[in-house]
Design a protein around this nucleic acid. Structure first.
Lengths: 414, 414
DNA sequence: CAGAATTTTTTTGAGGCTCGAAAAAATGGA
DNA sequence: TCCATTTTTTCGAGCCTCAAAAAAATTCTG
């Protein structure tokens, strides 16, 4: 079953640890690395000498801070930006966005493009993705050989192996093995990630204080998605990306959901559901394909202005989210929640009913202490998460080979 | 954050691996251990020589199997029963059960006792537990010094550190740090586990083929509990034992649950809920304190015999369990389920509605392929799980020190 | 401004661990 | 009895980490 530790695994693991420490801390000295990793100074010295020799790390300028301390000044170690590059491909409704990022995390090339994802053929969708990647690789600023990994993100369900999109609301197509397709086309390792999981990864890098070991990122958009970090690891289903919070059942046999079933949380809290309730269309009405952000903002403005069906629609959304979170918290215990997406900007309309509902549940025992952050713009978050995910893959698989960075696992989030 | 690997960790981890391999396989030869652990023959030889020298392992009789093969016969290595002993304490409704188990897993002493847990004072409850443990330790057959660990199991919520019972339906008392109490009293390390988690651990040892990396054990008893193994590890909440499947919300504002809230799965599927529906008492009726197994069996018999409120009660239970499982499967993907407890014997009455409900949910996409096992008797399962948990703690913490066997984690299930 | 104090980093030697290869042990078959 | 076969042990090599000492690079002090 689980395999014994060989002697040479040791060095590999400790190399990975040093790289991770540098990526987290920015410009730590060898002494600081020794402290955070718990390894001895001599070991850190040996490993960092290797990594510098290989061009993975680089010593920082000693001039940096006019160190006030006595003694030999610390010399900071940083990631060598030229050690590698990674590419992120984010596919969302009617929108395709690609960035190239150097090893230190700086964007060095990007391109964005509007598409009509809902009506495109399978071939056209794949073709657009391949073409945009090719254009970025052809960018004269980019050394193609340095691009070590591609991370794709898409709204919807992906498989645990991070190879394929299984189902997505942005296209009628299913089961597209994007990762395999890009790998075959460009010879660069690729993974296919779920957008909400990438949001969670990004939150962790942005604010490790708040989003450390256990937290939830919920996407309040046309659909409802979730990224979940538990005990420091990204939580995924056993076969798929999992965490389909939006399709937990809120009311058995209730409102019609975009997925074709009834009573899902999303069927009350997704943009289309809020829209449907605000327009008093009845719960059996077929969900509309898209509601623009502007329309949603207008809806929220109306709801704030006067009592009426708009306000009631947000109340119902809050209730569904609250009961859903309550059920979730019954399983995993409460944790900080980040609300992301256009409806997060209307969280003031959602929160009262949400808190009232959650207080009715087993998970809501300490409902007052549960805290919510809001972030209306999901795209930058998804891009950032993708970038960090791709970079940590490079850290672990390429620069510290032998330490398996399981695709589905979130081990490499940290 | 995560700490570097020191050089001496290597030996400790590999020792733990060898012990685990022997515990799983029974009487493996050194060659077989080398194969399963992936370590070299020389390493296995060195480690097993150490372990035999320390009295942890023992060579089996060579006469065992008249080996038909040519060549030097394999000599099996087994656990030395006298290396240590562990104690399990299982506290359930009106019942307290203790066993002492040797290092090889054989029961060497036991005692069971009826109590009136619902009305006992805090002191009396603790006193009974301490007293029964003391009696077993005084058993002349037991070498007190060899008892290396105590594992308690209780129905209800325990904390992640496995120190305390936070809440339990079997007593009005809350927050009893049983583990600390027993440790202080006897100087033997103790942990406090959730009963359903122990059921899951036991299932894994009983049938590793079926219950390997991902499965669910659901207790259908007076209350509804769950033990969940995901990706090979016992899943627990972040603060508590978590996995409160019974208190996921089935119908917002619905039937009155024993926990005081409304609409929980348990309020439809617990024994008291089935009883309440069968007797047509109305969903607001205060749950009865206990329904005997005999009464439940009579109810099931009636339901099988004729259509009526009894049959309808089981149908409602199935529906609640089905929607609950559907929501759960939306989060974690479907997995094999073991139904345990007295109502598992009535699973034929529950299953049709359960399958119908689950098919209405996102998690039920492949509902036909989801398989259910039933096991009417939970107590032996809980005891077994406790025993294995305590033994693997000894394996890892005492006989391979330095490898942290986190209390809350399920790492040591395997 | 020189030397002392201080802190960081590198070097060195010791001790441990795993591994592969070879040797030893234990058995069945000819 | 001796050979073939399989398991187990032994042995030396190669790494890795660690602690301690040495070296390096500063600031402080008189």
């Amino acid at each position: 079953m689980s395999v014994g530790i060989r002697h040479d695994d040791l060095r590999r693991r400790n190399r990975a640890m040093v790289i991770a420490a540098v990526r987290r801390a920015g410009q730590p000295s060898r002494t600081e690395i020794a402290a955070t990793t718990g390894l001895s100074h001599s070991t850190i010295s040996a490993i960092s000498a290797d990594l510098i020799g290989e061009g993975i790390l680089a010593e920082g300028k000693p001039s940096d801070t006019g160190s006030l301390k006595r003694g030999r000044p610390q010399v900071g170690l940083g990631l060598n930006p030229e050690a590698a590059a990674v590419m992120t491909v984010v596919l969302s409704l009617n929108f395709l966005s690609v960035t190239v990022i150097d090893y230190a995390g700086q964007v060095i090339s990007e391109e964005q493009r509007r598409l009509d994802t809902l009506t495109m053929s399978r071939e056209a969708l794949i073709g657009e993705c391949v073409a945009i990647v090719r254009r970025r690789l052809d960018d004269p600023d980019i050394d193609v050989r340095s691009v070590a990994r591609i991370a794709l993100a898409i709204q919807g369900i992906t498989d645990t192996d991070a190879r394929a999109m299984l189902w997505s609301p942005i296209t009628p197509q299913t089961d597209i093995a994007f990762a395999d397709i890009l790998e075959a086309e460009f010879g660069i390792p690729a993974t296919m990630e779920n957008d909400c999981n990438m949001m969670a990864v990004a939150l962790r890098w942005r604010d490790p204080e708040r989003y450390r070991d256990d937290f939830i990122a919920i996407l309040l958009s046309h659909g409802i998605g979730m990224g979940l970090v538990l005990k420091g690891e990204l939580f995924t289903g056993t076969h798929s990306s999992g965490g389909e919070f939006g399709h937990m059942i809120h009311r058995p046999g209730g409102a019609l959901c975009r997925c074709g079933r009834r009573g899902c949380v999303e069927a009350y809290a997704g943009n289309y559901a809020i829209w449907r309730n605000a327009k008093q269309l009845g719960e059996d009405t077929e969900p509309v394909a898209d509601v623009s952000d502007a329309q949603m903002r207008a809806l929220a403005a109306t709801a704030r202005e006067r009592d009426g069906p708009e306000r009631e629609a947000y109340r119902k959304a809050g209730e569904a989210l609250g009961y859903g979170l309550g059920s979730l918290f019954a399983l995993i215990d409460p944790a900080p929640v980040a609300m992301v997406g256009v409806s997060a900007a209307a969280f003031d309309l959602i929160e009262p009913a949400l808190r009232e509902a959650i207080a009715q549940t087993a998970g809501g025992q300490h409902s007052k202490s549960i805290s919510f952050d809001t972030e209306p713009n999901e795209l930058p978050l998804i891009r950032e998460g993708c970038a960090m995910r791709a970079l940590t893959f490079v850290d672990q698989e390429i620069f510290a080979p032998g330490v398996p960075a399981r695709a589905g696992s979130g081990k490499n989030v940290a």
